[in-house]
Amino acid sequence: MDRLTIIKVGGKVVENPDSLNALLDQFTRISGNKILVHGGGRTATDIAAKLGIETEMVDGRRITGKEMLDVVTMVYGGLVNKKIVAGLQARGCNAIGLTGADLNLISARKRPVAEIDYGFVGDVIDVNSRELRMMINENVVPVVAPLTHDEKGQLLNTNADTIAAELATELSDYFSVYLFYCFEKTGVLLDPEDNSSVIHELDMQLFLQYQNEGVIHAGMIPKLDNGFRAKRNGVKEVLITNPENMADGRGTRLI
C-alpha cells in the first residue's frame, strides 16, 4: 500500500508564527500522500477571554457551551484553518481546508452527560473517507479542523487528537498510515521542564503507570489514549514529537 502521513499539530506550534512556519516548511517537504490535522485551543481560549467567555477544562478536554462553540467554530474552522491553508499554498502545496461537516467527512454524536456535562462536544461515530481519498489521489492535501457534525445541522467540538486518530484508523484500510502528533515538546517527557527527558518508547502498561504517578497528565492523556487506539487499529506507526525532529523520526514512539 502507498504511504500516507498524517500530522496532527497543536499546542504552541499553531499559535506562534515562527513555529507554525517551521512546521509548514517541514510538512511541505514530506513526500507522498499527507494530511494535516490541527488544533488551536490556545487561540480559542484567548479570543474567548476577550469576549468575556470563560474557558473550562477537565483533564485536558474543553467544556463547550453554546458561546464557546461559536468561538471554536470561528477559530478552528476559520482563522487557524485558513492561515494554515494559505501558508501551504504559499509553499506550493495545494491544500484544502475542511471540517467534519464538509463532504460529510466526520459525523459524531453529542457526548451524553455522565459525571461531567461537556456541552457541545462530539464523539466520532463515522468517518466517510471516499471523497478524502479522491482528493489525496489527486495530490490535494486536506487540512482538517477539529469540528464534526451530528448530521442534523449541529456542529460539535471534537478533540483534534481524536480526529487525527479516527482518520488514521479509517484510512489504514487503504494506505500504510504513519501518524505524527506534533507539538512544542520533543516528545513525552518524564520532566515537563526538561526537553532531554524524552521517553523514547512507550507501551500501554508504562503509560498507565506514568498516568497513575502523575508523570503524564492533562492534555497528554487524550493524545496518548488516541495514539494507542490508532496503533491497535491498523496504523503502522504513531510518534509524539516536535517539528524539528519530525523528519528523522525522533520523539516518543508508541509500541
Rank of each mutant, 00 (worst) to 15 (best):
I35P: 06
V80N: 02
G40D: 05
A114T: 14
N137R: 12
A160G: 13
I216N: 08
R109G: 00
L239E: 06
Q89L: 11
I136P: 02
A90R: 10
D225E: 14
G249E: 05
L69W: 04
N21H: 08
D2L: 06
V113L: 08
T186Q: 14
D102H: 15
L171G: 06
M246L: 15
V127R: 01
T43P: 01
D70I: 00
L224V: 13
I199P: 09
Q205G: 07
T252W: 07
G122H: 09
T186D: 15
R133I: 01
G92E: 09
G60I: 02
V235F: 09
D173W: 08
V37C: 01
K50V: 03
K231V: 01
D203G: 09
L88V: 06
H217V: 08
R229Q: 13
Q205N: 13
M134K: 13
R3A: 08
N21F: 00
I125T: 15
S19K: 12
S196P: 05
D150W: 04
A86L: 13
V14H: 09
V238C: 15
D191C: 12
F180A: 13
E131D: 11
D191I: 03
L4G: 06
Q26N: 14
M57G: 02
L254F: 12
P112V: 03
G52V: 04
I163V: 14
K236P: 00
K231R: 15
N233Y: 07
E213S: 12
A168T: 11
T43N: 05
L132H: 01
T241G: 12
I199H: 11
V235T: 10
I47H: 06
T45R: 06
G11M: 02
S107E: 15
V143F: 01
M1Y: 14
D173K: 15
G52E: 08
L132K: 10
E115R: 05
N195K: 07
Y210F: 14
S107L: 03
Y76T: 05
G251E: 10
D248V: 10
K231I: 01
E193L: 06
L36M: 12
V143P: 02
H38W: 05
A48M: 03
Y210W: 09
S197V: 00
Q26V: 11
N245D: 13
L147T: 10
K12G: 13
T55V: 10
T73R: 14
G39V: 05
V37I: 08
T99S: 15
I53T: 07
Y178E: 14
P17C: 03
M68C: 05
G39W: 06
E54L: 10
G32V: 09
G92S: 11
A114S: 12
D117N: 14
Q209V: 13
I7A: 15
V140D: 14
E237R: 14
K82C: 05
N104L: 09
F207N: 08
A48S: 13
L147A: 11
K110G: 02
I96E: 07
V58H: 10
L88A: 05
V127D: 06
N21G: 03
I106Q: 13
V13F: 04
V215W: 08
G97T: 04
N21A: 12
V177W: 01
N137E: 14
L88F: 07
F228A: 11
M68H: 08
L88E: 05
T148Y: 05
G77R: 04
V238Q: 11
P146N: 13
V238S: 11
F175A: 05
F228R: 12
E131C: 01
T55K: 04
G60L: 00
T148E: 12
T43V: 13
K185D: 07
Q154H: 04
E138K: 15
F180M: 12
